[in-house]
């Protein structure tokens, strides 16, 4: 054990001849917020997919609390406490906000459906508890939306917030956030930021973000990727002044 909750060692992901992630090392301290930044196509989301189990590693390994995750599926990783959100929120439009959060709770916790079905009163009690938990998460993260609102009717900012609530509901140990601020205006970014600030320190967070100010305010540690490789790693202030980062990241942003 290194004191890290997550250790990514020499991780590589290849798609045919394309190397999306190239021997990346990353250590996330328990309770810390770790940002991954880099230009488009740097391999940030692929790295997150590899950590959460959505794509297999071509080389290297991912350790969670010291144990290798490589052979576990995404669902099994979620049940260990590694939960993620998506750049396009993974929500089911036909369900309400509360129901989406409940689905998150069911998929991240273990229980027998048959056992529930056979003990109906217990099942009903659990349903009440799950509904109450979903509502409590909305309140905890101060997401200004009614649980009964259909998700399909929400604007992007609230959808992203509900996606975080869906991931947060089962109290994960490691929360992986993929571009939670992309496509949002300043006030929406502020809402996401304050929701994350509220849970900061309680769990470990890995967050991909383009919005540099957001990263600088929230992160304890920053890793910069370019062409699938780590080009800088360290505290935000240090990384920000790194000449390689300025050349690759800020330069690329200027090109946009």
């Amino acid at each position: 054990m290194t004191g890290s909750i997550l250790d990514v060692r020499q991780a590589s992901v290849h798609f045919g001849g394309v190397v999306a992630v190239d021997e990346v090392n990353l250590a996330v301290g328990a309770g810390s917020t770790h940002a991954i930044i880099g230009p488009n196509g740097a391999g940030k989301t692929t790295l997150l997919n590899a950590i959460s189990g959505l794509v297999p590693l071509s080389g290297g390994e991912v350790l969670f609390e010291g144990a290798p995750l490589n052979k576990l599926r995404a669902r099994q990783r979620a049940r260990l406490g590694v939960v993620r959100t998506f750049q396009n929120p993974a929500l089911i439009d036909a369900l309400t906000v509360r129901e989406n959060i409940q689905v998150g709770l069911y998929t991240q916790t273990k229980s027998s459906s048959f056992e529930e079905a056979l003990g109906l009163p217990r099942a009903l009690r659990r349903e009440r508890e799950a509904r109450a938990r979903a509502d409590a998460v909305l309140e905890e993260l101060r997401i200004p939306v009614e649980g009964s609102t259909p998700v399909g009717a929400l604007p992007l900012g609230l959808r992203k917030a509900v996606d975080i609530a869906r991931a947060w509901v089962a109290k994960p140990k490691l929360l992986l956030l993929d571009e939670p601020t992309a496509g949002l205006d300043e006030s929406e970014i502020g809402e996401i930021e304050s929701a994350l600030a509220r849970v900061k320190g309680e769990i470990s967070v890995v967050v991909i973000a383009h919005h540099l100010d957001f990263v600088m305010r929230l992160a304890d540690e920053v890793t910069v990727l370019e062409f699938g490789r780590v080009i800088a790693n360290g505290p935000p202030t240090e990384v920000r002044s790194d000449p390689a980062v300025i050349a690759a990241y800020i330069g690329a942003a200027d090109d946009d």
């Binding site: 959505l54 995404a74 669902r75 979620a78 998506f86 993974a90 929500l91 089911i92 439009d93 036909a94 369900l95 129901e99 409940q102 689905v103 998150g104 069911y106 998929t107 991240q108 229980s111 459906s113 529930e116 079905a117 109906l120 099942a123 659990r126 349903e127 799950a130 869906r166």
Partner: peptide, 22 residues
């Protein structure tokens, strides 16, 4: 029952997202 009922509705509405959600 909550798990069966809700997950069935989730699957019927969007299999892809349901898979992603686990």
């Amino acid at each position: 029952t909550p798990r069966i009922g809700l997950t069935m509705r989730a699957v019927a509405s969007d299999r892809e997202v349901s898979t992603i959600l686990g």
